[in-house]
Design a binder for these strands. Structure first.
Length: 835
RNA sequence: GGCGGAGUGGUGGAAUGGCAGACACGCUUGACUCAAAAUCAAGUAUCCGCAAGGGUGUGAGGGUUCAAGUCCCUCCUCCGCUACCA
């Protein structure tokens, strides 16, 4: 069959997709004789259709996967579906269809769309998290953790979304609003299930160090911020004239002598007993009410006017015995630290503002050496380092040293000591939703909460129920689900009707891919040890905190519970966060009408062009704006290669990339092409393999193609030239193969190769091919470009200097000046310094 | 406020301390065409100049260096995370 003279992607892409599937080219199994490489892209939610963001994400992953495979790695590259979640319920209500049906239909559609893009997945490992054979295992994890107290139930004020009728994790509240529907989040007292992620706070923070270099700095920074470790001291202030004490957390124990009042959150547990019976009790209660009713957002905003009220009670400074009035403050948060702040107005701006407003005392205890701060004239708090004063035995010590000494003193007095405070809270995994994995416990009137025995798993999500029209879960009303018997005493019992947060499923799916069809256990330990960790993970930065932190947490927990290998510390060695695909400067959305549908683009240009453009338009980390003319350019490039190939075909041999020999050196044009070919191989390998800069890799191939165009007429004339052409063309196809595999396969096959390019090895460039006889050297005078000369490659410094000084342009510019120095960078540049 | 990232032509973007603007998009001109598309060729940072050539130029200002987009200091702007966090 002869090659079409026109590039027609539609006629070749499907053919190759079928061939790859038939030959099972991308199926993989553990093989200890080869190094492994696990490439993973964040799996999609089956919302209905693939969008351009997916295409970008998965195209990056596919290039990495195909490239590593050519490098000889045993590559695992799987795909699956993050299939539980709210949109399925909304669709179920709207179309009166079961969420499962909707979800599986979407999966079928999106799988077909992914297949059209030609991604090299091992489809045998496909999984959907809503399948009982998947969620069964996380119900098992739940039971094991429950046994050891890693998962627990507690009643607490929760983030509640009235629109979604469910609680939200702290991570799912964005600026006080629900991350899904943007409704302001309310606080509601509920009994909920929590995962004790705080038990791992230290390790989660510490191990971020191990990810440096492999993860983007900003993601590491986000996780650090989120975990929010704060080192300081706990200081105990006994109450004055009565039993009891106030514990505070402070990062500035060195200022403890400067405490002039105490500020409690209105919600502080001690408040009730402190104010009971005071003559101004009514006023205080009014303040508490006022503050409590404030919107959570407003209360935490900068703009909040500081407000407070004196309780009438006092406590005592553990060092000085000074009587310290206890106030309530609207800016003190009950959730952070101990809900109580020791106020040092001279050295903390908030306390300063508060003290000024209410006319409270101010005591200077830190000041710069040789200076004297006067509380009556200070206009802001002194927060810089300094020397301790008015601090008894600590006077004259630097405040940094003072921090340690005060902590020691507190410890010996039994009034506190060093402590660490975390921002991270335990993870609430209860959801009052239907389309999620059931939590496997029952409630028995006799035995209380009883775990479902492991052999009874999975607790199936019923397929004969529908979310209620207002969005609420049908589970609490579904007798066939709720009513069961107690596994312990056999009496009637009721099932837990909350389901798990969908982030639970996505916290371990990457491990399940290593042995996705295992029915006898969640994992096969051998497969896990072989494949994990994921070598390259690729996805959107919007998951920088949520999904990535949870997955790290799960990895450590599953390791400690013996599911994962004991030496597995982190799930993802390397992370690439790709930018968004925008249109006209903003996110694509149906409401804006600026959606570019990948399917349309494939129909129009073919999958290879779409893949190429997504990779060429910008470096992967950056957002890029979809350009209709830009994709035309990518299409043009592939057409150009096709035409060039067809034109040169009669002169081409079926050779491998980088196969031309030194004999073609006799023909200068052939030698030059060979040099460019090898230089391109070096650059593309570096750009794809180490730098993940696919745009410059593609640019390098474009340059090689351009030089092929320029030299083709001369090269077809000689055997040496034809040898160089054949090799260079093979190189173009091989280098481009991870990016535009269909077209490359088609042309490769036309050359007479019987194997798929997928089985081809990544070409090896040779140092010897990069050697030139003459090298262009840049001439500078006083750092300014003044000319270029050709010098023999092995010219010495002295020769280069002599040639440079003899150059006409250089001579013109140093005319009348004295040459002070000549800097020679061999093979590159000569800079003449003269004045 | 703290932490992190980023500022380069008309646009997307290139540059291990060594020729700033690779590669593309767009635009201009020409060739082919009855015409258009496609393709091919030439040009395209900016200022002076017919040209040769020269000046300027990577957010601003300093510094280090023979040489700075790149390293250091001060500052400005934008983006992200976090935040009356004690």
């Amino acid at each position: 069959m002869t090659l079409s003279s026109r590039y027609d992607p539609q006629s070749i892409e499907e053919k190759w997709q079928k061939l790859w599937a038939e030959r099972r080219i991308f199926a993989c199994e553990p093989d200890s004789s080869r190094p492994k490489y696990y490439v993973l892209e964040m799996f999609p939610y089956p919302s209905g259709n693939i969008h351009m963001g997916h295409v970008r994400n998965y195209s990056i992953g596919d290039v990495v996967a195909r490239f590593r495979r050519m490098q000889g790695y045993n590559v695992l590259h799987p795909m699956g579906w993050d299939a539980f979640g709210l949109p399925a319920e909304n669709a179920a209500i709207k179309h009166n269809i079961h969420p499962a049906k909707w979800t599986y239909a979407n999966i079928d559609n999106m799988r077909a769309q992914l297949r059209r893009l030609g991604y090299s997945y091992d489809w045998r490992r496909e999984l959907a998290t809503c399948h009982p054979k998947y969620y069964k295992w996380e119900q098992l994890f739940f039971l094991r953790w429950l046994e050891k107290g890693l998962v627990y139930r507690k009643k607490a004020p929760q983030n509640w979304c009235p629109q979604c009728h469910t609680v939200l994790a702290n991570e799912q509240v964005e600026e006080g609003r629900c991350w899904r529907c943007d409704t302001p989040v309310e606080q509601k007292e509920l009994t909920q299930w929590f995962l004790r992620i705080t038990a791992y706070a230290d390790e989660l923070l510490e191990d971020l160090k191990k990810l440096e270099g492999g993860w983007p700095d900003r993601v590491l920074s986000m996780q650090r911020n989120w975990i929010g470790k704060s080192e300081g001291a706990e200081i105990v202030f006994p109450l004055d004239g009565r039993e009891g004490e106030i514990r505070v957390f402070s990062t500035r124990p060195d200022t403890v002598f400067g405490v002039t009042f105490m500020t409690l959150a209105p919600e502080h547990p001690l408040v009730e007993s402190l104010i009971a019976g005071r003559e101004n009790e009514g006023e205080i209660r009014a303040f508490i009410e006022r503050t409590r009713n404030m919107d959570r957002l407003d209360r935490q905003s900068d703009a909040l006017e500081k407000d407070g009220v004196f309780t009438g009670a006092y406590c005592l400074n553990p060092f000085t015995g000074r009587r310290i009035p206890i106030w309530l403050g609207n800016f003190v948060l009950a959730e952070y630290g101990t809900g109580a702040v020791m106020a040092v107005p001279a050295h903390d701006q908030r306390d300063f503002d508060f003290a000024r407003k209410f006319g409270l005392d101010m005591l200077v205890v830190i000041q710069a050496e040789g200076e004297r701060l006067d509380p009556s004239t200070m206009d802001k708090a002194w927060t810089e380092p300094g020397i301790m004063v008015n601090s008894g035995e600590f006077d004259g010590i630097s405040n940094e040293k003072g921090k340690e000494l005060v902590v020691k003193a507190l410890e010996s007095m039994g009034r506190g000591g060093k402590t660490v405070n975390w921002r991270l809270r335990d993870w609430n995994i209860s959801r009052q939703r239907f389309w999620g994995a059931p939590i496997p416990v029952v409630y028995c009137e006799e035995c209380g909460m009883v775990p479902v025995p492991e052999q009874e798993l999975p607790v199936l999500l019923p397929l004969d129920a529908q979310p209620l029209p207002d969005g609420r879960s049908p589970l609490p009303h579904l007798d066939s689900f709720v009513h069961t018997v107690c596994p312990r005493c056999g009496r009637p019992a009721k099932r837990e009707t909350d389901t798990m947060d969908t982030f639970v499923e996505s916290s371990w799916y990457f491990a399940r891919f290593t042995d996705a069809r295992n029915d006898s256990g969640a994992f096969d330990k051998k497969a896990l040890s072989y494949w994990l960790p994921v070598d390259q993970y690729i996805g959107g930065v919007e998951h920088a905190i949520l999904h990535l932190l949870y997955s790290r947490f799960f990895t450590k927990v599953l390791r400690d519970f013996g599911f994962y290998p004991a030496d597995l510390e982190e799930p993802f060695s390397n992370l690439l966060t790709q930018g968004m695909v925008l249109k006209d400067g903003s996110k694509m959305s149906k409401s804006k009408g600026n959606v570019v549908d990948p399917t349309d683009m494939i129909d129009r240009y073919g999958a290879d062009t779409v893949r190429l453009f997504c990779l060429f338009a910008a470096p992967p980390e950056r957002d890029f704006d979809w350009s209709d003319t830009g994709i035309e350019g990518s299409s043009r490039f592939l057409n150009r290669i096709w035409r060039l190939f067809v034109e040169l075909r009669p002169h081409l041999e079926a050779t491998a990339a980088c196969s031309s020999t030194e004999t073609c050196a006799a023909v200068p044009a052939a030698r030059e092409l060979r040099l460019r070919e090898h230089a391109t191989v070096r650059k593309v390998g570096e750009d794809i393999g180490n730098r993940y800069q696919f745009n410059t890799a593609i640019a390098a191939v474009m340059e090689l193609v351009n030089s092929l165009y320029l030299a083709k007429d001369e090269l077809t004339a000689s055997p040496e030239g034809r040898e160089a052409l054949s090799s260079a063309m093979a190189t173009v196809l091989t280098l481009l193969y991870p990016i535009t595999p269909h077209m490359c396969e088609e042309l490769w096959q036309d050359l007479g190769h019987s194997d798929s390019l997928a089985e081809e090895r990544w070409p090896q460039w040779q140092e010897s091919a990069l050697k030139r006889d003459m090298i262009t050297v840049v001439l500078q005078v006083n750092g300014k470009l003044r000319g270029k000369i050709e010098v023999p490659a092995e010219a010495s410094r002295e020769e280069a200097e002599k040639l440079a000084l003899g150059d006409e342009s250089v001579r013109r510019h140093i005319d009348g000046l004295t040459v002070r120095k000549v800097v020679v960078v061999p093979g590159k540049l000569v800079n003449v310094v003269a004045n």
